[in-house]
């Protein structure tokens, strides 16, 4: 009876993996197929891929998003790392509050947040700058929970207190402690947080679209209305880039986790 159940279970598992696998793989394969399709009965071609550079709006969108990703991922680290280290060392009572605030954006949908951003960005645009790069302020909020978790895991794996007391007793000031003692010890967590931020910013559509800024995803949608083949080629390219980033994250995260398990 038990052997019969085992066999049934194995059949169920195989069928489940094939069906779910198809549901998840076919749409991605279809995008590849669509972007390399020739006109009429023409053979497969990379024309759509080669044409990406001939759409200036699309190129501008890509450049905008790459700049936003760079600024956001660095800015959030600059704000978050000193705060988290400082709170761990000197303000432990604030730790729960900082954690709560940092995870809060997870529960607020981006489409709600953007309603509140709308008047703020109108004011910013009229009085400070209407550059798309001001979106970094909003994006840093979006990536805050993910960066917080990555950094929290990194800081938990090292003994912040002992390290900084040792550095302080040798005469280091606080910036030196953070920059030359803490940062090198949590480098993989920093990279992890930065890569996650990049992946999130490159895929962001809701805020940019509603504040009328042409980032990568917004340009993608408008290009999709005129040339579906090229827009899907860009979508595949950005997807590949995101996959590379996420695979990189899974490699970056591993050694640190193993070390903390041993310790």
């Amino acid at each position: 009876m038990i052997r019969g159940r085992r066999a049934k279970l194995q059949v169920f598992r195989v069928v489940a993996f094939i069906l779910f696998g198809a549901f998840f793989v076919v749409p991605i394969y279809s995008m590849f197929e669509f972007s390399t399709r020739g006109i009429g009965n023409a053979p497969r071609t990379l024309d759509n891929w080669k044409a990406i550079g001939t759409y200036p709006d699309m190129v501008a969108g890509i450049v905008n998003s790459l700049e936003l990703a760079a600024i956001t991922s660095i800015a959030i680290l600059v704000v978050l790392v000193p705060t988290m280290v400082w709170v761990r060392l000197r303000l432990p009572r604030l730790r729960r509050v900082i954690e709560l605030i940092s995870l809060l954006p997870l529960t607020i949908p981006a489409i709600v947040l953007v309603v509140g951003f709308w008047p703020m960005y109108q004011w910013l645009g009229n009085n400070v700058s209407d550059s798309i790069l001001t979106l970094s302020f909003a994006y840093a909020i979006l990536v805050l929970p993910y960066s917080y978790r990555a950094l929290d895991a990194g800081l938990a794996a090292i003994d912040v207190k002992t390290l900084s007391e040792a550095a302080r007793s040798l005469g280091a000031n606080w910036p030196t402690v953070i920059w030359r003692v803490i940062v090198p010890n949590i480098s993989s967590a920093l990279l992890n947080a930065a890569l996650l931020s990049v992946a999130l910013v490159l895929g962001e559509y809701t805020i940019a679209n509603n504040l009328l800024y042409p980032n990568l995803q917004v340009s993608l949608v408008s290009l999709g209305r005129t040339n579906a083949g090229v827009s899907i080629a860009v979508a595949v390219a950005s997807l590949l880039f995101a996959f590379v980033l996420l695979i990189a994250i899974s490699f970056v995260g591993r050694p640190r986790r193993m070390r903390s398990e041993v310790a």
Binding site: T83, L91, V112, L113, G116, F117, A140
Partner: peptide
Amino acid sequence: TWVGAVPFLAYVAVFLFLPTVII
């Protein structure tokens, strides 16, 4: 000591709490 937490708190006050209050 509290000054150390000010940059972070100021940032979230403007870009997380202000939008919420605006809504």
